[in-house]
């Protein structure tokens, strides 16, 4: 069983993703903002982090940068956001985002990307 941290402030999206990923037998934890997410990350280990970019208080970019530079985590990060500005997306990849999925999204695609990211990480660690 793999565990996933979902960072998202929209309740509706949270619920939907939870349902989608539960079906694939993942364990989901939900954080409503970047700060909560940091607390989760300090306490427990995750196999994947899915985050929105626009979050209250500490935004997604900040979270990613803190994960990589302060906590030195190599957990794969999937950004799920409505923002489509190219600059923002490339910036995300620069600071350590592994994959980017646009909102609105296709649940099957989300599931397959999650699977791929986790498999890739498995491969790298072996």
């Amino acid at each position: 069983m793999y565990s996933i941290l979902l960072v998202e402030d929209d309740e509706f999206v949270c619920k939907a993703i939870e349902i989608i990923l539960r079906k694939q037998d993942y364990i989901i934890s939900i954080a409503k903002n970047g700060q909560d997410a940091m607390q989760y990350l300090q306490k427990s280990k995750f196999d994947l982090v899915i985050t929105d970019l626009m979050l209250p208080y500490a935004n997604g970019m900040e979270l990613v940068s803190k994960m990589r530079n302060e906590l030195h985590l190599d957990v794969p990060i999937l950004v799920l956001s409505a923002v489509t500005h190219e600059k923002t997306i490339t910036e995300g990849f620069d600071i350590g985002v592994d994959d980017y999925l646009k909102k609105p999204f296709n649940p099957s695609e989300l599931a397959s990307r999650v699977k791929r990211l986790i498999q890739q990480k498995e491969k790298n660690t072996i």
């Binding site: 626009m54 208080y57 923002v83």
Partner: peptide, 10 residues
């Protein structure tokens, strides 16, 4: 921080 977290793309 709260200004940086405004919901706007650009």
């Amino acid at each position: 921080r709260s200004l940086l977290a405004l919901n706007y793309p650009r």
